[in-house]
Nucleic acid binder design. Structure first.
Length: 475
DNA sequence: GCCCACCGCGCG
DNA sequence: AAAGCGCGCGGTGGGC
């Protein structure tokens, strides 16, 4: 860890102080709720376990492992499904075992495995999250440790409990866990996020004009454009199926590509998602795989090592999309990647825009990512320091209770609600840009809030009305 | 009983 | 041929 400028050191110092304040504040949790939820899952676990053990697959399992049979063993699951039952194995672990994570079964349609994964998900919910939070609760508050000195990119980490991996994407999991986090009496949970801060910071490093345009012009959308290329759809067809096609392009292609993934890794997951989640060519369109078939793309194609992408396969299309993304659309970004990597190779280190030194042995993708990830977090950290000082200055009742890489969670007093959100907005969209002149794109926030006395699960989007009041968005 | 590497999976 | 960034946590399986 090396803050290489006085300013960088100051940020670590001030950041440590504000994170300590957040730890001291603590996040309120409901122990009664946690106990009830744990109990509920345990009942469902028994039912699901019984159903699995009545399945014919379990007979096969017992034949192979006998008394050593263990339903919770992924190693055994992989051996049964791929080894004994002989289903096609697409992924191996680095040590040569059958990979048995969820994506290893994406191409299969086995009821036993579906039920197995549902059970595993419930157990994760209970054992990692609900029990983990409960065991850290003291008098109804958890006080996680935020670390600023442990992460290679100069981000923070969080532990005991980790507030930075609380379920959000899966509805059931999210509901189970986030309902445990409650506002203090008479307060509202408020969460404010930087929108797309890593992409914005990447634009600051690379100065790619196309990326900057995507950020500045709200009528453009790089994920939509990528979905059009990837699925051979019109803009309207993508918009009509936005939640599926556009978000798939975003999460399974664009983001992985920014992290340094490659087409033959992205393609299989997208190909499976298309079928599994019933993607269509427009609102009342035909299934996407049929649509692609009409355009001459009938199969996934060979994604194994050394395979050539054959024309007329989806892998080939993904390869073309990748080439146009990096050689054409984001040409300047690509040039930056080459220069950044060359600089690291010749000097053995790089400096971040926020004044930190990244030195050590890195792979290419790590070097390209480290500075961007760190600087993006430093935008949040600097804002957090400013926000806490503002709360102190005006002796506000509101307390910051957590931080999740690019978002701030607070227990906000209703009297302070509008002022608090106005302050966050001012700090992030105006003050931050004044403080760092390397920020050459706008910064924006999104805000969500619960009702008074609500939970972290109940938060809904809020926006500023013409009178400066922050109200719930449509419905 | 403890330690450790590996794996899978939650988040940004 | 290539092989997605950064974390924390719990379980398995092997070893002592």
């Amino acid at each position: 860890m090396k803050p290489a400028s006085r300013e960088a050191y100051q940020l670590m110092h001030d950041g440590s102080v504000v994170l300590a304040q957040i730890e001291h504040n603590g996040f309120r949790v409901s122990e009664a709720y946690l106990n009830a939820a744990i109990e509920e899952i345990t009942v469902r676990e028994a039912e699901l376990t019984a159903a699995l053990k009545a399945d014919v697959v379990w007979k096969t399992w017992a034949k192979k492992y006998g008394a050593a049979s263990k339903l919770s063993s992924r190693t055994q699951l992989g051996e049964i499904v791929f080894g004994v039952m002989g289903h096609e194995c697409r992924y191996k672990t680095p040590t040569g075992l059958y990979a048995a994570g969820e994506e290893a079964f994406d191409h299969l349609d086995l009821p036993f495995v579906r039920a197995y994964l549902e059970l595993a998900n419930l157990q994760k919910t209970r054992d990692t999250f609900l029990k983990g939070i409960l065991s850290e609760s003291v008098n109804g508050y958890v006080r996680p440790s935020f670390l600023l000195n442990s992460v290679i990119t100069y981000r923070s980490s969080c532990r005991d409990p980790n507030l930075q991996n609380v379920p959000a994407r899966n509805q059931q999991m999210s509901a189970y866990v986030r309902k445990a986090f409650v506002a203090r009496d008479g307060r509202r949970i408020v969460e404010t996020d930087f929108s797309g801060v890593e992409v914005r910071v990447a634009a600051c490093y690379t100065k790619d004009p196309v990326l900057i345009r995507y950020i500045e012009d709200p009528t453009t959308d790089m994920h939509r454009d990528t979905a059009m290329d990837m699925f051979l759809l019109t803009k309207e067809q993508v918009e009509e199926t936005r939640k599926k096609t556009r978000d798939c392009a975003k999460n399974m292609f664009v983001f992985p590509q920014f992290y340094g993934s490659v087409y033959f890794q992205c393609a299989p997951q997208i190909w499976d998602a298309m079928e599994r989640r019933d993607f269509r060519a427009g609102k009342d369109g035909i299934p996407l795989r049929q649509h692609l078939a009409k355009k001459g793309i009938k199969t996934l194609g060979d994604v194994n090592a050394g395979a050539d992408a054959v024309k007329g396969t989806f892998v080939h299309l993904a390869k073309k999309v990748e080439e146009s993304m990096w050689n054409d659309r984001f040409r300047v970004y690509t040039d930056w990647k080459r220069r950044w990597w060359d600089e690291y190779c010749s000097k053995g280190y790089v400096h971040t825009l926020t004044g930190f030194l990244s030195q050590g042995v890195y792979r290419r993708n790590q070097v390209l990512n480290t500075a961007i990830q760190g600087s993006a977090f430093h935008c949040l950290l600097w804002s957090l320091v400013r926000l806490q000082r503002w709360l102190n200055k005006w002796k506000m009742k509101t307390k910051i209770v957590g931080q999740i890489h690019d978002s701030i969670v607070a227990d906000v007093h209703p009297d302070e609600f509008d002022d608090y959100l106005a302050a966050v907005k001012q700090i992030i969209t105006v003050d931050l840009r004044r403080h760092w002149d390397w920020i050459i794109v706008p910064m924006e926030i999104e805000a969500e809030a619960s009702e008074v006395g609500g939970t972290w699960y109940e938060k809904r989007g809020v926006a500023e009305d013409e009178n400066g009041r922050w109200v719930y968005k449509n419905k």
